[in-house]
């Protein structure tokens, strides 16, 4: 593990503990213990020092969290960690769960979603620590998204027909593809600036992402984000 990364995690944990007024030493220990024992085996908590080979993506089993503080909403983290449910309908790497029927592919329904469930107190402590992991702050600071609205009807047409996002993503519980993360609840889960920056250039966030760069200009991206932020779960 890189020394700089170690230092950044340690400082994040210290800061997380400092935010908990009661028994900060215990909070520090709890956050560190949970992150290392329950998160680190599946999630990357440190940004890679150098670009890593694409083969890494094939073996990755959960999203990186070294930019969790740039990506997630804290309230959602607390809620989700204490009551986790699938975010990727076909799993984080769908190819592991595909069955070839002989006439097209389907998903192996025997694959069970499994994520540790934390107590509310644990979830609160861990969320505080995660929100301090911000390896991509430069991308957020460079983003130009400003909150706005779009006519829902146009938003639906843009998402589904014009941009084809629904090929991989669901913008309602009954519409959209299976390989990408759910987006009908993204407003609760994700920061608007993250959505904007990631859609504009997902490779900048994750060189091994399977999300394509859609070569849209910023106003077009912002319209999509307006739509996603207007969706309710």
């Amino acid at each position: 593990m890189n020394v700089t990364n170690l230092a950044s995690i340690a400082s994040a944990l210290v800061a997380a503990a400092a935010l908990v007024t009661a028994a900060p030493t215990q909070a520090f220990a709890d956050a560190e213990s949970i992150l290392q024992s329950q998160c680190a085996s599946c999630h990357a908590l440190q940004a890679p020092v150098n670009n890593i080979a694409k083969s890494e993506r094939l073996s990755r089993i959960a999203p990186p969290l070294h930019f969790a503080g740039n990506k997630y909403n804290r309230d959602w983290l607390v809620s989700w960690l204490s009551n986790p449910s699938p975010i990727h309908p076909a799993g984080y790497f769908p190819q592991r769960h595909i069955i070839n029927t002989g006439d097209g592919d389907t998903l192996d329904t025997d694959v069970r979603f499994a994520h540790p469930t934390l107590s509310t107190a644990e979830a609160d402590t861990v969320a505080t620590a995660l929100m301090l992991l911000k390896s991509k702050s430069a991308l957020i600071e460079a983003d130009t998204y400003q909150p706005g609205t779009v006519a829902m009807r146009m938003g639906v047409m843009d998402f589904r027909r014009f941009k084809g996002c629904d090929a991989c993503h669901q913008d309602s519980t009954t519409s959209g593809g299976l390989s990408g993360p759910l987006l009908y609840n993204s407003a609760r889960r994700l920061q608007a600036a993250y959505l904007s920056s990631f859609i504009l250039n997902p490779v900048a966030w994750d060189p091994n992402t399977v999300m394509p760069v859609l070569e849209m200009n910023e106003p077009a991206v912002h319209k999509l984000v307006h739509y996603l932020m207007m969706l309710e779960e």
Partner: peptide
């Protein structure tokens, strides 16, 4: 082949027949 598994099979299918898991959601 591995790149195809990573980037293409979601839509084009594991057998390359155009019947990936997303295919029924694509116009």
């Amino acid at each position: 082949a591995a790149l195809y598994d990573m980037y293409c099979v979601q839509c084009h299918g594991t057998q390359g027949n155009g019947k990936g898991i997303n295919a029924s959601h694509i116009n």
